[in-house]
């Protein structure tokens, strides 16, 4: 894939962010507004500086380019679903499912695996997730997310 002028993209992204925050400034009190206003202006100025730099001496780099691009996409989608479904399905259950999906998908030898192999993996995952969950919630009293099943 071709190398892109990342400085250009970066400067545009930051200008957009500055714009979004500026539009949210609303009716802040005098002292609540001083700092954010200054920071937004500074962000805009420095982004313009970066924009100028992108024209003069841009940093060229490939973006979103990985050896196993599909793996990364599947992983990203899975972890997003993991968090989104956490409250609906239950933290422990979704963790086991998502963990198993990732592990199985990333397994380069998965076609040669027997059902027994998968069950062993699943068992390992269950034990790990339960162990951490129990140690955290019961032993250490660290707050842990709730949901269906625990």
């Amino acid at each position: 894939m071709k190398e892109k002028n990342v400085d250009l993209y970066a400067s545009i992204l930051m200008l957009v962010i500055a714009g979004i925050f500026w539009s949210q400034m609303g009716s802040f009190t005098k002292f609540g507004a001083i700092f954010p206003r200054a920071i937004i202006v500074l962000l805009a100025i420095s982004s313009i500086g970066l924009f100028v730099k992108s024209l003069l001496s841009p940093e060229k780099k490939t973006i979103f380019e990985h050896k196993e691009k599909l793996d990364a996409v599947v992983f990203l989608v899975t972890i997003i679903l993991w968090v989104v479904l956490m409250k609906i399905i239950g933290f422990v259950v979704i963790s086991i499912i998502a963990y198993f999906v990732i592990t199985t998908y990333l397994d380069t030898e998965r076609k040669n695996r027997t059902i027994k192999n998968h069950l062993v993996t699943l068992g390992f995952i269950c034990i790990q997730v339960f162990a951490f969950y129990l140690v955290f919630s019961i032993l250490l009293h660290v707050p842990v997310p709730h949901g269906f099943l625990f």
């Binding site: 400085d7 970066a10 400067s11 930051m14 962010i17 500055a18 925050f21 949210q24 802040f28 009190t29 005098k30 002292f31 609540g32 507004a33 700092f35 954010p36 920071i39 937004i40 500074l42 962000l43 420095s46 982004s47 500086g49 970066l50 730099k53 940093e59």
Partner: peptide
Amino acid sequence: SIIKGIVGGIFGLLVSTIGIAPIGGDVR
């Protein structure tokens, strides 16, 4: 690149302003 570091740092400062203003109590 120094300029990118500066942009990143200012972005971090901006993120820090999310929430209740320490002075004035505005919801930002």
